[in-house]
Write a protein that binds this DNA or RNA. Structure first.
Lengths: 178, 178
DNA sequence: ATCGCCTCTTAACCCAGGTTAATGCCGCCG
DNA sequence: CGGCGGCATTAACCTGGGTTAAGAGGCGAT
């Protein structure tokens, strides 16, 4: 039994329209979601009302609130669809139960967590050690299709800056590059 | 078999003097380390030569380079002892092998990864959404003993700012608080 | 004791990014 | 068709943090 078998047996297929929320910051939805198709963003709302983007999710990714799924605490971020999406809903607790009897699945779970931890670590490095300009260039290198798919506002919110600052950065790069 | 049993059977006890490195950025040491006693810092060296601290490690924590342990790539950070340390060295691959036959241990491994992922996520949130001043206050709240154990330079490097900026922040807080 | 080294603080100046606001553009809706 | 709302860009001004440098303890070594 591998992950796609598990989803076939125990996943609940759910469709979301562009713009609709899967869950919101503060909700206690303990589900995880596998992205079949579509494109989503996970974002924090800061106390001053600003929106900062935690990550973009494309087909093939798994997403959900760790705090809600594993610690029974409210989600620290919101998840919204930027395109029409097809998700497969499942429960982390249930997956772990089943994985306990299926080595292949179990390996996949630790692989998932490992992958998540490494991604977060890379993001930590970028936020801690790189300038906004360097983060922008890395983002373009890693997700070249992103520029077409999302607004400058969202790219800025991912980088942790304002759209105004991003516009300045692009101008700087264009001048230096040309 | 639980984790302390595993360490007893398969861990290699190693002692490090204050100031010595366990591994350095770029090394390919695939080991993980359990901290028996002491205090360490994990830090990145940026291209401009600056030092940014990824995390502080106290007794009871597990640390190692994910990239080196799981992806056979060089470590992205260095690990140095800030006090004399006693570590227990083990291999992630081996632990996973053994865990495959010991449910308790296996649960402990996923718990470890989960804990790591949640910590990284919190740090990501702080770096993305909070000001240096807010990060400083949170750090004090979370690790009140830290101020005594490390220098202002290290606290600043953890926050992602310079010691000069940290000094200014403390002055601001003192003036506002008084 | 004193020298040297290191840490912390403070000040002066600089720069990246935040804020606000104006402009132009595009797409949508009536 | 015209109007309107959202997005991107640009400019002007402000602010937090970086940089450099100076001075003030603290402390171990000679």
């Amino acid at each position: 039994m591998d992950f796609s078998d598990y989803l076939k047996d125990h996943g609940e297929r759910r469709e979301f329209a562009r713009g609709s929320h899967v869950f919101r910051q503060g909700d206690t939805d303990p589900s995880l979601y596998f992205v079949h198709a579509g494109f989503l963003k996970a974002y924090y709302v800061t106390e001053s009302g600003g929106e900062q983007i935690k990550s973009f999710l494309e087909a093939g990714k798994v997403i959900g609130s760790l705090t809600a799924a594993c610690a029974a605490e409210p989600a620290t971020f919101s998840l919204v669809c930027m395109e029409d999406c097809v998700l497969e809903r499942f429960s982390y607790d249930h997956l772990r139960d089943v994985a306990a009897r299926h080595p292949l699945l179990s390996e996949m779970v630790t692989g998932l967590l490992l992958d998540l931890a490494m991604k977060k670590e890379r993001r930590e490095y970028e936020l801690l050690c790189l300038s906004a300009e360097q983060r922008y260039q890395r983002l373009l290198a890693r997700m070249p299709e992103l520029a077409a798919r999302v607004t400058q506002q969202d790219i800025a919110a991912y980088l942790g800056i304002t759209p105004v600052a991003l516009s300045r950065i692009k101008k700087r790069l264009a001048e230096r590059g040309a």
